[in-house]
Write a protein that binds this DNA or RNA. Structure first.
Length: 301
DNA sequence: AATAGGCGCAACCGCGAAGGC
DNA sequence: CGCCTTCGCGGTTGCGCCTAT
């Protein structure tokens, strides 16, 4: 049977919006709002568009106070920092950047920021020989990353080998430098090695960089749910940015059973000094390097 | 000047979540 | 409680523009 289509595809226009359609939608929205039903809106507004399309157009383009154009350094840092913390939760990231849309941020990340993190040039075409070099470099990087992130994550979120050489720098220093990074201005909060009883490891000093969704999906469910989403969504703490280090609780690496590539990165640091880092419950040796890559990538921000 | 191909952005698609009945 | 509808999100695609050759 399948899912019912959200609209009559045959009678619906697709593709770029014309100025007339924009005007029509804008005028309707200013007069009536959505009326709580995007699906019915195009008909009421006299538009031959899918409701979803109208919604997208409004949210990403027509809505008042939309900011277009270049992202500031501060915005860059916020995006990088949040991405490192919560991953591709663009709507949440957008909520931290007034006037920016999730689509905008997503595009910006995919086209510019990610490349910057990878250490690739973001400028336009390079001379042919340079492009070949770039390809070689990319392949090299991919090989390296597949060592660290054997799953698909490596392909999706590779980190630069041309980042500053962080080899030999204690992980704790890297973490501290991330935490001390000027990203965290404007009232954002980093909870780091604090007294959150977030999960169930024995020594109470783990450090996690993870995804809110996962914390609510069984990993840390029940009484010790970290409540990540509530930090990000919930009222008073909306502005908070999390890099959570469980205090009394801590996490056992073995409890982090998710595949790194399969879903989202979770990093647990089982000791105060962060001598070992565990990603996805794999051995500390490789994951130490992984963390260096992440830290290195964030350094680029 | 023509063209190939990369880049960036707008828009689409499909899925899961949320909420109403 | 389960079904259905709608919303919202994240990933992906398509296309126009721009640059190098």
């Amino acid at each position: 049977m399948g899912r019912a289509p959200c609209c009559d595809k045959a009678n619906v226009k697709k593709g770029p919006w014309s100025p007339e359609e924009d005007k029509q939608l804008k005028e309707y929205m200013e007069k009536h709002g959505t009326g709580g039903n995007w699906i019915a809106l195009p008909q009421k507004a006299g538009l031959r568009r899918c409701g979803k399309s109208c919604r997208l157009r409004w949210l990403n383009y027509l809505r008042p106070n939309i900011k277009h154009g270049d992202f500031s350094d501060e915005e860059d840092r916020i995006i990088c920092s949040l991405f490192a913390n919560i991953g591709s939760r663009w709507s949440i990231i957008a909520a931290q950047l007034p006037g920016r849309t999730d689509n905008d941020i997503k595009n910006y990340w995919n086209t510019k920021l990610k490349k910057r993190l990878m250490g690739l040039p973001t400028s336009h075409r390079k001379p042919h020989h340079q492009q070949q070099k770039k390809h070689q470099l990319q392949e090299q990087q991919q090989q390296q990353q597949q060592q660290f992130f054997p799953s698909s994550f490596a392909a999706n979120a590779p980190f630069s080998s041309s980042a500053p050489d962080l080899e030999g720098i204690p992980i704790s220093h890297l973490l501290n430098s991330l935490v001390a990074h000027p990203t965290h201005q404007s009232g954002n909060l980093i909870v780091f090695g604090g007294d959150h009883h977030s999960c169930s490891s024995s020594d109470g000093s783990s450090i996690q960089i993870g995804y809110g969704r996962d914390f609510n999906h069984g990993l840390y469910n029940g009484r010790e749910n970290m409540g990540f989403e509530s930090h990000l969504y919930g009222g008073l703490e909306t502005e908070k940015l999390l890099l959570v280090g469980g205090g009394g609780g801590g996490c056992e690496a073995s409890s982090i059973g998710y595949s790194f590539g399969e879903v989202k990165p979770t990093i647990a640091c089982p000791t105060d000094a962060c001598h070992g880092l565990y990603l996805d419950g794999r051995s500390g040796a490789a994951t130490d390097t992984s963390f260096r890559n992440i830290a290195s990538a964030m350094y680029h921000c």
